[in-house]
Design a binder for these strands. Structure first.
Lengths: 255, 255
DNA sequence: CGTAGCCTTGAGATGCATCAAGCATTGTGG
DNA sequence: CCACAATGCTTGATGCATCTCAAGGCTACG
C-alpha cells in the first residue's frame, strides 16, 4: 500500500493514477491538512503518507457503513457529507467536510467504517493507508502529535454540535451553521461573505436536527430581517454581527 | 512527571501518594481501560504510564474549561460528567464516564481543556501525563493503536448522541439512555437491571436535550407502562425488550 | 432534625413538525 | 436546444410534543 503504483487498488477498473511522490510537500493545502504545523524542511518524511489520490463524483461514496477500514481520506478538493443511519432508518448527518479535512477516523475503533461518506460535488481525496500512517507517526513525533490534534479537534467539534442540538432554537442553529461555514471558507481563502451551499435544505436540516421546511422558513426570515440574502443555494451574509448575536441570544435575557 | 514521587504535583497541599509501580498490570480494570487488548506479558511496558492517582470528591473538578492540558485521566473508581458551556451560559453535558473510561482527550487540540470534568460521587482517577503517553506509544505500537481506538470510539459515541439529539423523541431518548447505562454497568460486571443513577434529572435532561420535567414525566410514564421501576435515583429495568423496541419506533411505522 | 436541593405533577403556552400545494431549478432525452 | 420530468424550495394551515411556570412533596446531607 505504501508503494505508489500506476494502478489504483481501490478502483482498479476505473481509474489509473501516476505514482505519487512528495504529495504533501507540493500540495497547496499543506498548511491546512495533515502536514499542518510540521516544519517545511521535514515534509519529506511524509513522502509515503499518501498512497494515491482518487476522484469521487457527486453522489458517490468514499466509503459506506460496514466497509472494512483501511485508510483515512484527506479531502483535496470538493465537499463531502458524513451520515449515520439508525437501525430503524433515521438519518443524521454528522458533518460536512471541506478541503484539508480528514474522513474515516470513526473506523479505527471497530476496523469498519461507521458512517457513509458521500461527495456533494465532484471531488478528490488523498488516500492515507492507516498502517503506514501509524508507522510513520511512530518514527516522526510531529506527525503523531498532529494526528492526535486532528482527532481531538473532531471531538471538540462534536461537543459543539451536541450543544447546538441540545440547547439551541431553530434560528440559533441556522445562524451558527451559516457562520461556521463562512469561517471555514474564510480559512480556505474563499469569500466568507458570499458562497454557494453544496447541500440541500434537507441535508442542512438533518445536520441541525430540523425539518427542511424549518430551515427554509428560517432562511426566509433572515432574508426579511436583512441578515442574509438567499436565493436557492446562493448565500450572502449581510449582517454577520447580528447573526452572531442571535447565537448568544441567552446573554441578552440574562443581562 | 513520569517518575512517581511521594508528593502529588497536582494537589500538593492535600494528598500524598506512594510511588506507583505496575499501576496498570495490577489494576482490576486492566482489560477495560487503556491496557485493553494489550497482551498481559507486555503490560510491564506501561509501567510509567500512570504517574499517580488522585481522589476526587463529589462535586469536585478533575479539570475545568481553559485549564492547561497536561494529562489524560483514567477513571479508576466513581462516576463523572463532562460539561461544555456556551458563551451565553447554556450548559450541555457531553458525557458520563464510568471506571475504565478516559477524560481529557478534547484538550489535545488546543492544549487547554475544552470541558469541565466533575465527579458525581467520590471517585479516583489515574493521571496519565500526556508527553509520556506519546513517548510510550511511539515505542510500543499496541499502545499507540489502543489510544487511537479509544479516541475513535469516542467519536463514534458522539455520532450516536448526535443521532439521538437530532432525530429522537423524548421517550426514545430516555429509553436509549437507560439501556446505554445498563449496558455499561453490565460491561463493568455490575447489575444491568438494577442500579442507582448518579446524576440528577436535570443532568440527564442536559445530556439528552430535554428539560428535567420531561425526563421526570417520561420515567413516570415508563413506570405506569411497567417498563421500569423508578423511585428517585433507584432504577430497575423491568422490560428491556420493550425499551429496545421504543428506540426503534420508526421501524414499526415503516413495516 | 432542619433545610436546601431534588423530584413530581398539573395547566397553559409555543416552537417546530406535519401535511399540503404550487413554484423554481436542474438535468436529460428527444 | 427545448421540453418535461424529477428534485428541490417556499409558504400556509394545523396539530402536537415539549417547554414554561407553578406548587407541593420528598430526600438526603450536614
Amino acid at each position: 500500500m505504501n508503494n505508489p503504483s500506476t494502478q489504483c487498488n481501490e478502483c482498479p477498473q476505473i481509474h489509473v493514477h501516476k505514482p505519487l511522490t512528495d504529495a504533501c510537500a507540493t500540495c497547496s493545502l499543506r498548511t491546512l491538512c495533515v502536514p499542518g504545523g510540521i516544519p517545511a524542511t521535514d515534509l519529506a518524511k511524509l513522502d509515503n503518507l499518501v498512497s494515491m489520490r482518487k476522484r469521487i463524483k457527486r453522489g458517490e461514496y468514499v466509503f459506506r457503513v460496514g466497509d472494512d477500514f483501511n485508510s483515512l481520506y484527506a479531502v483535496r478538493a470538493g465537499f463531502f457529507k458524513t451520515r449515520i443511519t439508525s437501525t430503524d432508518g433515521r438519518d443524521q448527518i454528522t458533518g460536512f467536510q471541506v478541503p484539508g479535512e480528514l474522513l474515516g477516523f470513526e473506523g479505527v475503533a471497530t476496523e469498519q467504517h461507521g458512517v457513509d461518506a458521500i461527495a456533494l460535488e465532484d471531488s478528490e481525496v488523498c488516500i492515507l493507508p492507516y498502517t503506514d500512517l501509524e508507522r510513520i507517526a511512530r518514527e516522526f513525533p510531529p506527525l503523531q502529535h498532529q494526528l492526535h490534534r486532528i482527532m481531538s479537534r473532531e471531538i471538540m467539534r462534536e461537543h459543539n454540535v451536541m450543544l447546538l442540538l441540545g440547547t439551541m432554537k431553530a434560528e440559533e442553529r441556522v445562524a451558527a451553521f451559516l457562520l461556521n461555514l463562512s469561517e471555514r471558507y474564510r480559512h480556505l481563502g474563499y469569500s466568507s461573505v458570499e458562497f454557494v451551499l453544496r447541500m440541500t435544505r434537507q441535508e442542512i436540516g438533518s445536520y441541525l436536527g430540523l425539518k427542511l421546511e424549518t430551515v427554509s422558513r428560517t432562511f426566509s426570515k433572515f432574508h426579511e430581517q436583512g441578515l442574509i440574502e438567499a436565493q436557492g443555494k446562493q448565500i450572502k451574509l449581510i449582517d454577520m454581527g447580528q447573526l452572531r448575536q442571535l447565537i448568544n441570544a441567552n446573554k441578552q435575557v440574562l443581562s
